[in-house]
Amino acid sequence: MQRVNMIMAESPGLITICLLGYLLSAECTVFLDHENANKILNRPKRYNSGKLEEFVQGNLERECMEEKCSFEEAREVFENTERTTEFWKQYVDGDQCESNPCLNGGSCKDDINSYECWCPFGFEGKNCELDVTCNIKNGRCEQFCKNSADNKVVCSCTEGYRLAENQKSCEPAVPFPCGRVSVSQTSKLTRAETVFPDVDYVNSTEAETILDNITQSTQSFNDFTRVVGGEDAKPGQFPWQVVLNGKVDAFCGGSIVNEKWIVTAAHCVETGVKITVVAGEHNIEETEHTEQKRNVIRIIPHHNYNAAINKYNHDIALLELDEPLVLNSYVTPICIADKEYTNIFLKFGSGYVSGWGRVFHKGRSALVLQYLRVPLVDRATCLRSTKFTIYNNMFCAGFHEGGRDSCQGDSGGPHVTEVEGTSFLTGIISWGEECAMKGKYGIYTKVSRYVNWIKEKTKLT
């Protein structure tokens, strides 16, 4: 034993070699072989497995989906700052455009905790909710729209109204504003409101030439003092309507412009014939205590009207009353817009006519005020429907199939267009061939041609 100890002390290297040989010859039971080890760690190889990531292109799944990435790591994937920024906006807080917040056709661009709407022409605001041009839906104005110097929408209202708090709607500024039905039992019968379409306001006024200088022999019209197929109006439903009495009662109609003036057809009036105007009328054979009678003290036909040349060209006249009318729910003026808007309103496509005229061709006159909704007829169809001249200051309205029309005794009465609950004068009943005849239409004086003249002559002093 002493000898062994001496050998170990003198030859430590020998001992180490012996131990190493023993270990190498022993069977290893701690580690699995290569094949079995792979069965336990069965993990798919990654895209760049075996390579240094710093030297390969980034992978979106590896960089940002398996674990949260930084902007720089995302930049490695896209290799483009702009594309990385677009991805980053949604990656950080989701897609803010998912709810489609942009209105009126706006395009949404996502941002971090926010979004941006790219608005089409005519709109602005956070969600493109603000109209900035009158060309689109009248700028959301209830009545009139004008573009300011910086191309912003400025709404306005006709006389007797003021802008509401929203700067879009119009509200009454006087007790009985024009064009409004205020009798409670008839307010439910107000005709369907007309909503502004998209309009090209630059070209809204037709490029028409008034044929002022045409000389033409007097034409022989049949029954051209021209509501057939209409309905009984309720008291106060058309408070701007008046009836004219002269040699015979209810020979023509008219509309209240203001307390002192009536507008009617020029062919209705004769110099030297006494005319009485009755406002607030409903049943011409009954006294309903809503009527107001006034005498006409002055007749002003349009300066281009000449019955000797043509009885229905420039067929418009103004009547001055001896005493002002007292405005109330049964006696209310009709609204008159400017030339541009009167023309736009007419193009809405349908209007209402009213009167006490004959209820059928050569038949009896109506006792109760009649009204009828009539569609506008395109000019080409209008011209083809008659052998008589249709001037540019006239328009056609009615039904091709016949059966409904204005008729004798309705002449001078109103053709009105309702705009968001307020009625505007767009025409004056003038003439036609018979009444409600198939293929024939009622012919009306186009008020847009005469609004400046009306307003100039009827100013209240």
Rank of each mutant, 00 (worst) to 15 (best):
N313R: 14
E27V: 04
A192I: 08
I15P: 04
K51F: 05
E76T: 14
Q96S: 15
G236S: 05
E73D: 10
K146V: 07
E420G: 14
S184E: 11
Y312N: 07
S204R: 13
W356I: 09
Q185A: 07
T458L: 03
T445R: 00
T422S: 04
Y91L: 11
N295A: 12
V331C: 05
P12G: 12
P120T: 05
K146Y: 12
L20P: 02
F395L: 01
T133A: 14
F121H: 10
V92K: 15
I262W: 00
R83I: 09
G403I: 14
K438I: 06
F348R: 09
H400C: 06
N38M: 07
A317N: 00
S156G: 07
N59I: 05
R3Q: 09
I256A: 02
A233L: 06
R404I: 13
C102T: 00
D322F: 02
K45N: 11
L372M: 10
V331D: 01
D150K: 09
R384A: 12
R364P: 08
C382I: 03
T133Y: 07
Y115E: 01
I40P: 15
T84V: 06
L60Q: 15
W356A: 03
F176L: 06
D338R: 04
E420C: 09
V4A: 11
N313Y: 13
K152W: 05
C117L: 00
K247M: 10
I300S: 03
N304R: 13
T158W: 02
G402S: 15
P239H: 01
N42E: 08
N343Y: 03
T389G: 14
C435M: 03
G432Y: 10
L244R: 01
T445Q: 05
I136D: 09
N151S: 09
W261L: 01
S217F: 12
G122Q: 04
Q370W: 03
C18L: 14
C252P: 01
W261A: 01
L24P: 02
S148L: 13
I15C: 06
T218I: 09
S220A: 08
Y352W: 05
N222E: 10
I275E: 02
V174Y: 05
Y312Q: 06
I344F: 11
S255H: 02
C145A: 03
K446V: 02
G442H: 14
R373K: 15
C252T: 01
C69H: 04
S411Y: 14
E171V: 09
F121Q: 05
E142G: 08
P375T: 12
K126D: 09
E288K: 07
V296W: 01
W118T: 02
C134Y: 03
E35Q: 12
R180P: 02
Q370K: 09
K126R: 14
K45R: 11
W453L: 00
V202A: 13
V183N: 12
S423K: 10
K89D: 13
S184V: 12
I112E: 15
K457T: 15
N59R: 11
L52G: 09
L52R: 12
T190A: 13
M65L: 09
M437G: 12
F424H: 01
Q57F: 08
A9Y: 12
E340W: 11
V4K: 12
R379Q: 10
F144P: 00
A366Q: 13
V296D: 01
K89N: 13
V374Q: 04
C407D: 03
E418S: 11
C18G: 05
N36F: 08
C69R: 04
R373S: 10
E66N: 08
E433T: 08
N113E: 14
V277K: 00
Q216L: 12
D249K: 14
G13C: 13
G355N: 07
F176T: 07
G357K: 14
Y391R: 14
K68I: 10
P177K: 00
A279G: 04
A9L: 13
Y312H: 09
H400D: 14
S182E: 06
S169C: 04
T84R: 07
A266S: 04
T332H: 05
T133W: 05
T445S: 04
K126T: 10
V56G: 15
Y391P: 15
F360K: 14
V181W: 07
T461Q: 13
R75Q: 06
N393T: 13
C157Q: 00
C102Y: 00
T290A: 05
K339D: 07
E35A: 11
G357S: 14
L367S: 10
S448H: 08
C155L: 01
E53S: 10
V77F: 06
C108I: 01
H303L: 05
R379A: 07
F196R: 08
K247A: 13
L41D: 15
N113G: 07
A436D: 12
N313I: 10
V447R: 00
V368C: 05
K188Q: 11
E129I: 02
H314K: 02
T381P: 05
E434C: 11
H267A: 03
K440C: 10
S169L: 05
V248R: 13
A266G: 05
G105R: 03
T225V: 13
Q57W: 06
P239E: 00
A317L: 02
V227Q: 06
E320G: 02
E10H: 12
K387W: 04
T84Y: 04
F144H: 02
L24I: 07
R140M: 09
F121I: 04
T218H: 08
F388G: 08
C268I: 00
P324A: 10
V227L: 11
E165G: 10
G349K: 08
S411C: 07
Y161P: 01
P101S: 03
Y330Q: 05
V181D: 05
G402K: 14
D378T: 05
H289A: 05
K260C: 03
L14I: 12
C69N: 05
A366N: 15
Q96Y: 10
C134M: 03
L372W: 15
C119V: 01
K446P: 03
N38G: 13
N147A: 13
Q96C: 04
W356C: 03
